[in-house]
């Protein structure tokens, strides 16, 4: 017996679901911007979320940023040594960490740590009807749960990114200092010599995009979780996978745009 009803799907089940998902995500995102400027404003909850997000990711970003700066410098040294260009290491690391590594490392760690946590927390609230309970108590759960988290992420991720950049450069400095006894001021003078205003703005824009992506994806997946505890796990997992994928996509697009601005 073929139980497939003709005309049940517009294209196919998978593609239909994909486009419905995209449309839902679009509506969820536009709702964020609509609710953002409408009162009431939950300032205290936003500040709480800033601490939650910042404190959750801070230890891991400190360690990872430092190690990446140190290891990246160590790995780049032999190639530069071949050309007798080790003096370029500080400026190379300055560019690499500020333009790419800092924003990427921060956002990927935050996607794992913060995105999954938001997805699981909201998912759990959804399946245990806590979100419905807010709604029937005349509290707008979207505003209280989603808007506050996305705003907190927009504030916190850029701060964490610049913190990661500083820690990464410190890691790199430690390696350079150990190998060549370069002084602190000399290293940072070299590191900042090749960095321009555009690089700083680009990092800021990237971290804002990444922060928004992490929080909105986590909230979207959690807010729409179904199927009990299994659904909560799936929401947390999908929040991480999807936000990481989108972060790489955004990285590629922003680099293309910035390079276009840089050379024209």
């Amino acid at each position: 017996m073929n139980d497939k009803k003709p005309g049940k799907y517009v294209i196919s089940r998978g593609l239909d679901q994909f486009f419905i998902g995209v449309s839902d995500a679009y509506r969820f995102t536009t709702r964020f911007f609509k609710e953002l400027f409408k009162p009431p404003f939950y300032f205290r909850e936003t500040v709480n979320q800033c601490f939650e997000i910042g404190l959750k990711a801070l230890p891991l970003i400190s360690v990872t940023g430092f190690i990446i700066g140190l290891v990246f410098t160590k790995q780049s040294r032999p190639s530069l040594e071949d050309f007798g260009a080790t003096s370029w290491l500080p400026s190379l690391m300055g560019i690499a960490i500020l333009r790419a590594l800092g924003p990427l490392v921060t956002s990927l760690i935050s996607a794992g740590k913060v995105g999954s946590s938001i997805g699981a927390e909201l998912g759990s609230m959804k399946v245990t009807e806590q979100i419905d309970a807010m709604e029937v108590s005349a509290i707008n759960p979207f505003k209280y749960l989603v808007v506050t988290r996305v705003l907190a992420s927009l504030v916190t991720i850029p701060l964490l990114t610049f913190y990661c950049i500083v820690v990464g450069l410190l890691g790199s400095y430690v390696n350079v200092n150990m190998e060549e006894a370069t002084g602190f001021i000399a290293y940072f003078k070299g590191a900042f010599s090749s960095i321009g205003f555009l690089d700083i703005i680009t990092s800021l824009v990237k971290s804002l995009f990444f922060g928004f992506t992490i929080a909105i994806v986590g909230c979207y997946k959690g807010y729409n979780a179904t199927s009990g505890t299994r659904g909560v796990g799936r929401a947390a997992n999908q929040a991480v996978v999807l936000s990481m994928f989108l972060i790489f996509l955004e990285e590629m697009l922003i680099v293309q745009v910035v390079n276009w601005i840089r050379y024209f």
Partner: peptide, 23 residues
Amino acid sequence: NAKELDALRLRVGFSFQNSALYD
């Protein structure tokens, strides 16, 4: 509309099957 619905919801209490307390 959303505002009117919220005003009505303040007059109607809903006790959930699993209590739905905020964890």
